[in-house]
């Protein structure tokens, strides 16, 4: 059987996909360091994309995914599924409230640096795009195989979110550039 072809979400996806609030991944019971992630989606002219949508998928604070194929002997946090979805507003901004994920194993049983998996959709994008958010303050970035596979350092930098304290909470900024000289790295996976 052949894969069913992808098509764009179009301009009106919010009717079906973002009527409910799905960008808050945490509850009071969730374990781990609370963080915010926010950013802007920009097109090839540097203009904000007001009809884009971002989905995130991440491990819990211990570095385990809420999924049966993750058989690690790490605790599961029943109050954290690790999935969220945010539309963009008229200025192209999306945002999430979540926790800093723990480290999960990668290729060759290397330890991956903490990261959030990102899927980007928009009117004008015929196929969704995959990227990852890494955190600027994580020393483990230096040994992350995915980051190190990107030879161009300026391009590698497009995957690093920088944090600042807002009301006592770390908020990481991660802009997604669909095109241009600082085009975000997207993955074939």
């Amino acid at each position: 059987m052949k894969q069913t072809p992808s098509q764009t979400v179009g301009p009106f996806y919010s009717i079906g996909l973002t009527r409910q609030t799905t960008n808050v991944l945490v509850s009071d019971a969730t374990e781990g360091q609370r963080i915010g992630i926010e950013g802007q989606i920009l097109d090839g002219d540097g203009k904000p994309v007001p009809d884009a949508m971002v989905e995130v998928w991440q491990a819990n604070a211990y570095g385990r995914y809420h999924h049966p194929d993750d058989k690690q002997e790490k605790p599961l946090d029943q109050s954290f599924t690790g999935w969220g979805r945010s539309g963009t507003d008229k200025n192209g901004f999306y945002s999430f409230e979540t926790i800093k994920p723990g480290q999960v194993p990668g290729a060759g049983d290397s330890a991956q640096a903490p990261h959030v998996n990102v899927t980007v959709f928009a009117r004008g994008m015929l196929v969704h795009a995959y990227t990852r958010i890494y955190f600027a303050d994580e020393p483990a970035n230096a040994n992350d195989r995915v980051l190190n596979s990107i030879k161009n350092k300026a391009r590698r930098q497009t995957l690093i979110a920088t944090g600042e304290k807002k009301d006592g909470k770390a908020v990481y900024r991660f802009d997604i550039r669909l095109q241009g000289d600082r085009e975000t790295v997207f993955f074939d996976m």
Partner: peptide, 23 residues
């Protein structure tokens, strides 16, 4: 699609737990 489709070559990734799990 002209201003919104990524133009750079996609970077290949070896699938890890991050890719083979999902909501």
């Amino acid at each position: 699609s002209v201003k919104r489709g990524p133009l750079q070559k996609l970077v290949p990734i070896t699938q890890t737990l991050s890719e083979i799990t999902g909501p």
